[in-house]
Every structure is written in C-alpha cells, then in structure tokens.
C-alpha cells in the first residue's frame, strides 16, 4: 500500500538518514533532478549505503535513476539494484521501448547479482506529451511495470503551458493516466504539489487526485506526507459502509439469495470489490470499524 511517496535528495545525508521518520509509505531516493552532474557518483554510493545500513522498516524503498538518454542510468542500476529496492522509477519514459530497454538491463543486473528475475519493479515516470499518449502501451508492455507516475513539471514544459496550482493544464494527463493504468491493471500516482508553504493547497490537490482515481501521491516535502496519507486513507464512513456491505453479502448467502440491497441500493460486484479493498486497506492501517456501542 502506497498512499504517499516522499522524494529524498540523493546526496543529502541529513534527509536520507531521517527519511524513515516522516510517515511516508514509500521513499524515493532521487539520483536524477536532485543531484548535480558532478555529484552523481557520490549520490549513488551514499544512497547505496543508506539502503544497506539504515533501517527503513515499514517504509518501501524506491530509487529514481537517471533517464535512459544519459550516461548515468546503467551505473545507477549497477550500484542500486543489488540493494533490492521495491521499484525503480524511470524518468522521461516516452515509449514501451524505453521500458523494455530498462527492463532488459535490469534483468541482466539481477542475473549478475543472483537476484531472481523480476524482483525489482518498474514505475515509468510519464512527463512528456509522447509519454501521455503512449501511456496504456507503456503500462502494459512488461510485467515489471507496477504503476504509472505522473510528472507534471516537465510535462507542462513539454506542453508549452504554465504549471498552475489549480492544475487545469494537467487535467487531461491525469485522467488519461488513471484510465491507462487501470486498463493495464496497475497502480497510478499523482505528481507532487510543489508549494511547501501552502497548507490548504496540498489538501485540495490531494483530494482532486483521489477523486480522479489515483492510488496515491508523491511529495517533495515531508510536510505534505501527513496530509496525503489522510486524504488517501479510507474515511470512517467508508470503512463502516464497507463492513455493512460485507455483512449484507454474508446474510444474503446464508439466506440463499443471489442479490441483496442495502439502504435501498442493489449491491453488485463492483460495490463488493470496493468494500473488500476498503477493508483490506483499513486493516493494513489498523483502522477499526466504529464501535456501535460508542
């Protein structure tokens, strides 16, 4: 379960060593934009040691490597794949061929260090117009692809429009990515909200993403993690309703009825599937159903 994914600059020891205390479901060690070209070597080694020696218990580790049009990405994978990150975030993914190229090299490295093939997942970062247009093919071209990730800053530059807080300029890309990812059966993550000091703005932006169907949202600021987690967690009303649905289904089975209604609404398969997802997420988060006696 990933509601929040926090970017940690790959060459900043203070952020890296504290990366697991901000409450993020996953951290993204960033070797790309957060690291200057002359420090790529240093960041690679620093992130490798952080992954090797620090305890990120309960916090999933993701690495953003450099894009495949640079000289760095293979070295990034050579250094960091042996540490078995859950996922490699692949920036500037434009085509399925980009994914397959990375996939193939990851398979090679996995083979070299005796890791089972396919252990490490891939998350294409869609941040070009071409990437958006190819998003379904990208999401479905390899079993390694676990999710899509929308990067709005580079995308709006490519679209030749201004990035705004309201985000009208990325509406199409957002809905397109959600549809593509869901069609391919993978998760989908929303772009970070970049104004660190706008406490109301992050709430609105995260709510928008959740309403559109995103699985979770990335963040460049530890301050946003708590908000993102709250927005992407099921509400008490959702949890209670999910238990009601499951209760009704059980009852229907006992009574040998094929269909049943709850609060005047027919309970069909999608509603049950949603209820099951809500309950499994609530259980993972340690959230209980409301005590009826309270």
């Amino acid at each position: 379960m990933r509601r929040s994914m926090l970017f940690l600059p790959g060459n900043n020891p203070n952020m890296l060593i504290n990366g697991n205390c901000f409450g993020a479901d996953a951290v993204i060690f960033d070797l790309e934009d957060a690291v200057s070209p002359q420090e790529k070597d240093a960041a690679r080694i620093l992130v490798r040691n952080t992954m090797r020696y620090m305890d990120f218990n309960g916090c999933e580790m993701i690495v953003r490597i450099n894009s495949i049009d640079t000289d760095y990405w293979k070295k990034d994978l050579d250094s960091l794949l042996p540490e078995k990150p859950a996922i490699i975030l692949l920036p500037k993914t434009c085509t399925p061929e980009d994914v397959l190229l990375a996939d193939e090299y990851m398979t090679q490295v996995e083979g070299k260090c005796g890791i089972e093939k396919g252990t490490v997942g891939l998350m294409p970062l869609i941040e070009t117009a071409l990437g958006v247009e190819n998003s379904y093919r990208i999401a479905s071209c390899s079993n390694r692809v676990k999710a899509l990730f929308l990067g709005a800053e580079d995308l709006t530059a490519d679209l030749q429009c201004k990035r705004t807080k309201e985000g009208r300029e990325i509406e199409y890309a957002r809905t397109r990515l959600v549809v593509a990812a869901r069609a391919a059966g993978v998760d989908v993550y929303d772009t970070p909200f970049t104004d660190v000091n706008d406490d109301a703005g992050i709430v609105e932006d995260a709510k928008t993403a959740k309403e559109l169907g995103f699985t979770g949202k990335a963040s460049i600021s530890p301050r946003h993690v708590e908000t993102i987690n709250a927005v992407f967690s099921p509400t008490q009303a959702e949890i209670d309703y999910a238990y009601e649905v499951m209760g009704a289904i059980t009852l229907a089975k006992q009574m040998g009825k094929g269909a049943i209604s709850l609060h005047g609404k027919m309970i069909d398969a999608p509603i049950v599937a949603r209820a099951e997802r809500t309950i499994s997420m609530a259980e993972a988060l340690g959230l209980d159903r409301r005590d009826i006696n309270e």
Binding site: P13, D41, I45, L46, R48, N49, T50
Partner: peptide
Amino acid sequence: GALECVIRARVETAVLR
C-alpha cells in the same frame, strides 16, 4: 557528525575520484 554509512560513502567516493 556524519553517521558511519555516510563516512564510508564519502571515503569511497573520494577513492573512486
């Protein structure tokens, strides 16, 4: 006040360079 994993990383980087 660097942690040991940081010290090791920086020494390794310096050696590499």
